[in-house]
Design a protein around this nucleic acid. Structure first.
Lengths: 369, 369
DNA sequence: ATGAAAGCGCTAACAC
DNA sequence: GTGTTAGCGCTTTCAT
């Protein structure tokens, strides 16, 4: 790993170095100074056409590739943004990641991605790693566990990032508290949940099973709050037996609903915490010989591709995930050309709306559980 | 952006700098030299316990975060690996990306990800970008277009990377040619396609429709070759009308098969180029009132989650995608502790196997197209 | 076990 | 329009 060494040895000066090709090599070959090569490469400075082509030729012939680290160190600009997700497979995260990646790339930046696997300690460590890399922005995606210790530690990270001229972007997750220097991109979980619950009520449903979502997750709390609010607004009492939180996966939706069905749960509609859960629920329903929406209605949340792919298509709440990702980096980099690149404090909320497909109908009082 | 400047102004020396906290600040605060801080932080050198705790305290109190760029520049080690995919949403790529990300993280590295959107020029540019970042390895995923110009240009990149002590890893894509310094992780496209075709033949099928996959893609060529080989081995003639390449998506599977069905295509089984196409095909079949496998058999390729999620479950060829991603970085970083970190020339092939679900049965001669 | 000093490869004043 | 000169923040000899 040591490539230092015989710089000052007694051998001939030329062709002494066999290591990586540097800007100096290009300069020598083109018969100009390193500064001129730099200016040519960055194109943000006037350079004579003749010089330019000499330099470009030297670059080509030498196969020179600028060292981004040296550049970052000297120029104080890294051209990378970081994103921390739960899991790159999960479509919810993948769509947001795509937005981040696309927006970053369109701004000539590379995207550093890291996955937490749902471990909040890892999340903190990854934010640190991204800070080490001096990412221009660090985007944190998805619901956070509502733990004061964790919040405090993440707050510290947000402040450190801000102090270093970067920004922590909270994408679809709750604020760390007033005064914490972050940028936020959110969507209305509570409102969406209320809207789709109300939609179900409008279709005649009174007994709606809320299924899925980790209890400790802020997202679950918000969706549940919206659900309850809509119920309350219509004067429908909340039956605790109809609140069945748990997890976010398809598996959970399938297994839990299957159990519930076996126990003879009394509901005419299911509000799944997200589309994955809904897909699993649909599986359980179909397996039980129940038709959707003839026997039972079903709605999801997020409008992931799966919602359109299952039969019947799922009525769900559309969340513009990719757009959120793009917006996250736009907002974070908004002040990039000004003095300070961070724009802490800015925040925006993207709109959601109900997408109507075929999974909701009037209640069927005759269904035998 | 300019944080240089008044270094030599006349004001008091202490507290002159308000910029980022550096190792020097930590050294001062701890009353030691920068070298000692470095050694403490890296832990690869003996440091007195007392000194260590002084340094650690200073780091904590100052909120110091090492600058990865300075470290990379000085230490010649970047601790990042790059991955270039088509699209982060596509599960095929996402699973491989997950493997790369997990293996990278488990080795204390961060993962730089970039998406080409299927544009080969972008692919070249992204490899350059990753080279600029001095990624320890650059993993290229997915089928390549079989264009000599492109191959030549990518070869140049592979050589440049190798010369810089990095490696280009070809993950599930064809070699750039003998002698090109790359690492390869592949799976047997042709063998898998032959195997599943033979499986269909074994079930009694003689007229098998091959559906999907971009014609110009190396992957398509390989799968098709395997399909033809299996047919030939059983003495079944290849009917050109039954080779319907095109794209890889669900949409394509649905629309193309729908047209074909309308035209009264004469086949008893469909071999979809991948599971996404198969899922679309299943949709078209179901819509046409055809039952799988009673009326028509259907198989896919890749064993993506969707294969297990549709009803009936898809018989398909399992490809260990995540494992390929992990293997890609393992192989690439195999020599990391030795003199040269690249291990060009190494290659490995992961095994595939048929996963039997419910989508294949005997041919139904009575089906009315 | 620790410090001093010399770079790593680049950019950005500052001259001319 | 181009060269010269300082660093950017770190690691790593080489001393001690």
């Amino acid at each position: 790993m040591n490539r230092r060494g015989s710089t000052g040895n007694g051998t001939t000066r030329r062709r002494a170095r066999s290591g990586p090709i540097t800007i100096e090599d290009v300069a020598t070959k083109a018969g100009v100074s390193a500064a001129t090569v730099s200016r040519t490469l960055n194109g943000n400075y006037p350079v004579a056409a003749a010089t330019r082509s000499k330099v470009e030729r030297a670059v080509r012939e030498l196969g020179y590739v600028v060292n981004a680290h040296a550049r970052a160190l000297a120029g104080n600009t890294t051209r990378t943004v970081g994103i921390v997700v739960n899991d790159v497979i999960d479509p919810f995260f993948a769509y947001i990641a795509r937005g981040v990646e696309r927006e970053a790339t369109s701004r000539g930046r590379l995207c550093l991605i890291a996955a937490t696997q749902g471990d909040s300690r890892r999340e903190l460590a990854l934010v640190d790693l991204l800070h080490e890399q001096r990412a221009d922005a660090v985007v944190l995606v998805g619901g956070a566990y509502d733990d004061p210790t964790f919040t405090r530690q993440m707050t510290k990270r947000a402040e450190a990032l801000a102090a270093a001229g970067s920004v922590l972007v909270l994408c679809g997750r709750p604020s760390l508290g007033p005064g914490v220097p972050t940028v936020q991109v959110s969507y209305d979980n509570e409102g969406g949940a209320a809207a789709i619950t109300d939609y179900l009520i409008g279709a005649g449903h009174r007994r709606i099973l809320y299924l899925g979502g980790p209890t400790a997750l802020s997202t679950t709390a918000a969706r549940l709050a919206g659900h309850r609010r809509a119920l309350a607004a219509r004067g429908i009492p909340v039956d605790p037996d109809l609140i069945q939180t748990g997890e976010f996966g398809r598996r959970f939706g399938y297994h839990r609903l299957r159990e519930l069905l076996a126990e003879g749960v009394d509901a005419t509609a299911v509000f799944a915490a997200n589309d994955m859960v809904a897909a699993g629920a649909l599986e359980a329903l179909t397996e039980a010989g129940l038709r959707v929406p003839a026997d039972l209605s079903l709605v999801g949340y997020d409008d992931l591709p799966v919602a359109a792919e299952v039969a019947p298509g799922l009525t769900t709440v559309h969340v513009p995930l990719e757009e959120m990702g793009r917006e996250a980096v736009r907002l974070a980099l908004a002040g990039e050309d000004t003095d300070t690149n961070a724009a802490p404090g800015s925040s925006m909320t993207v709109g959601t709306h109900i997408v109507t497909r075929a999974s909701v109908g009037p209640p069927n009082p005759d269904r035998r559980p």
